[in-house]
Design a protein around this nucleic acid. Structure first.
Lengths: 155, 155
DNA sequence: TTTTCTGCAAATGCTTTGCATGGGA
DNA sequence: TCCCATGCAAAGCATTTGCAGAAAA
């Protein structure tokens, strides 16, 4: 994982380049996305921002996420069940491993990924530009907890 | 690709098992999904059904797709830009290769995929149950057409 | 002071649902 | 005949947009 503080500085410098303003709400959203603990949803970001700035609206969260996507500083993970989640820590395409039990999303290392894209290009003649790779399963913590019948707690 | 005729028969027998009815509209939707040429969207399915049954409503298309998903006979490919597409020919998780130019979606063979899931399990302790793998790029036909400035035509 | 940002509410766009009518089996 | 399926319209939901007032710079 990238250092959240460095990511925050990167985001801030992109904003300064474009002469965009650093409001308290915006800064709070940036901090949450720079960390991207567990890959938060819009609702989760909204709730966290509201702790410090209770008047923050959902629209503001959406607008800031849209801005960061446009700047290439946040990655959107769209799921069909209406639960989009975001990653501002590593805002470029990379594989995700989703626990179906506790909903945590982790970023695995995957050295064999290069072999896959090579095989695809060679086989199909495609010029591969991007990808979206999600694996679903049960994390080791939830496998151990299986007997207790509840998902593993987030740290 | 699975034989579309065999896929259609498989779908029909699932419906008969549950004593569900074979209406003309339903049969038309089944045929389109059994073939899944290019992985159609809801709108594309609707238009094709309307050729033979002009009164068919969007709601009917949605209801039948939901039924097939429930029966495990159709796979939904959700994209964030509000363009879900469906595969009833291979209704189980498998990699897709999406051309960003002509929007065609193809199903590549990918022998190196097994290595990837093995690496993931070993590295993270996850029990991998499913996946969603999409690669985005430009197909070879569209690469050739690039000078003409328009996407390759579907066959 | 200027211009962007916020926050509210209304508008979107896709999908689902309720219900009366139609039509398989 | 019995119910499931269709088709219409209304409802849902996440997200986007318009706009007036608030607040960065």
């Amino acid at each position: 994982m990238a250092d959240p503080e460095i990511r925050l500085q990167e985001m801030l410098s992109k904003l300064k380049d474009r002469a965009l303003r650093i409001t308290p709400q915006r800064l709070a959203i940036l901090r949450i996305l720079a960390l991207s603990a567990g890959h938060p949803s819009v609702e989760q970001i909204h709730e966290k921002v509201r702790v410090d700035f209770p008047t923050t609206s959902l629209a503001t969260v959406y607008k800031n996420i849209a801005l960061l996507k446009e700047l290439g500083e946040a990655l959107e993970l769209g799921f069909t069940d209406g639960s989009n989640r975001y990653d501002g820590n590593r805002p470029y395409p990379h594989p995700h491993l989703v626990c179906l039990r506790c909903k945590e999303i982790i970023d695995p290392d995957l050295s064999s990924l290069a072999d896959v894209t090579a095989e695809l290009s060679q086989e199909t003649g495609f010029l591969i530009l991007s990808h979206r790779l999600d694996f679903f399963g049960i994390c080791s913590a939830c496998q151990s907890m299986e007997k207790q019948g509840e998902p593993a707690k987030k740290k």
